[in-house]
Design a binder for these strands. Sequence first.
DNA 1: CGCGTCGTTGAAGCCGCTCAATAGATGTGG
DNA 2: CCACATCTATTGAGCGGCTTCAACGACGCG
Lengths: 251, 251
Amino acid sequence: MSSLLNNSKSKVTCTNCALYESCIPKYISRPKLETFENIIKRSSILHKGDYLHHQGDPVKSIYIIRSGAIKGYMNNNNGDEQICGFYLPGELIGLDSLHQSNYKCAAVSLETTTYCALPLNKLDHLCTQIVELQQTMMKIMSKVISFEEKMLLAACNKKANERVATFLLSLSKRYKHIGYSSNHLYLPMSRREIGIYLGLSSETISRVFMQFQNQKIIDVEPKMITIRNMSLLKDLNHGCSKHKIIEHHVA
Amino acid sequence: MSSLLNNSKSKVTCTNCALYESCIPKYISRPKLETFENIIKRSSILHKGDYLHHQGDPVKSIYIIRSGAIKGYMNNNNGDEQICGFYLPGELIGLDSLHQSNYKCAAVSLETTTYCALPLNKLDHLCTQIVELQQTMMKIMSKVISFEEKMLLAACNKKANERVATFLLSLSKRYKHIGYSSNHLYLPMSRREIGIYLGLSSETISRVFMQFQNQKIIDVEPKMITIRNMSLLKDLNHGCSKHKIIEHHVA
DNA sequence: CGCGTCGTTGAAGCCGCTCAATAGATGTGG
DNA sequence: CCACATCTATTGAGCGGCTTCAACGACGCG
């Protein structure tokens, strides 16, 4: 099945991939890129509801989304769902699992999704061969840590409308990064999933969307948000009025 | 001043450091460890309220806490404080900043703190020389991403008492990892700071602490929490009754 | 066409925030 | 060493935002 995709038509390479500008290969110089390309397993496909990996599966690869969207989630003991994150084209899945041998979360596709796989058993060696790869991996991971912290701050300290603003701006930035529109945001996930991710109920997500629409900040469609007033959205993102600063001594 | 610390007494090395077992050098074989040791700047000291770095400072090193505690925080536009994280002995500061040239957050010591510095301009080269270092760095960063996700889930989906339970268990695990007691938890930070970190008010932190004390789960002292019933605490940590699971198709 | 899911909207209740007061802890200078 | 000032922690009362429960319309899929 998927071998059809691998071999048919003109050969897909990293350099002619639509995501080249926002993916790892951009940072690898030409002679070494071939080594990298030989390791990558390219263009597997998942349909909506298919799993990239289940909870407990052995960690064997890092995955890079080429198109579509993936949801990472886990069940806690009570049978509740917790969403670790959403993965869009150009983003890496599995960076939170490199230190363990089995996945603590599952990754399921929200729509038809294609991806590349980077086998872990070859990554270490590849990093020593290609210095740029090692540097790029560390920078990407640092960026992810930074992103997670930002979302953590948002989830902790902000009110519902501010959280939703942060979420929309995050989507906008990520879509822009891969060359999509930063104003027309496709939503591969449901209101309920956004709610779980942000720690809010699906009803609250609906209500905030409607509130933003009435304030002419966004236009709401079931699977699409159009940003009409970016600056107002950014104000909401920065705004958070819960805690006051305390000054410390300067070293 | 600090040169006194560097040169006096018997030389402090990574191998005779109290944190050896839970720090990077453990994963580096002996011949190469010397190279690593020559790069590390050892045993700088900060007093309570001193800054490791300010918001906007250039990112030049990764720091490893040897003793004490550091709080990472940033101000948003409204003049409110947001806490990115607390750093305990054996933990690395700056992993969220490797992808940028300037710090977006400040790091201030909550008590007398000693640390080592790992200069970034030498890290890349060192990683190519020492494969274990590169592997260890990636695993540590992966662990941090995983930790951040866990805290994010806690902050998002859990109620106040469950968040506090998660926080205490996180401290317990981290103290245990460096050979401290997992039941007697020293709190270098104030109730207010715990509150900001967890997205709760300081009063709520107080009230939950008192509630746990009445339930004989913990004993509360101003700067010390003693865990009396670990399993009840873990039940609270896992418990979260906000969202129901939806089943997806299996690939 | 009927069913299930998703999204929206309304009403009621509760959790945690805010404000405020007191007690306890800490530090400072006389 | 004590008196005072300052900051932190605790406790109470009232309120607001978000959840929960419920109903309904829209949409997609068999």
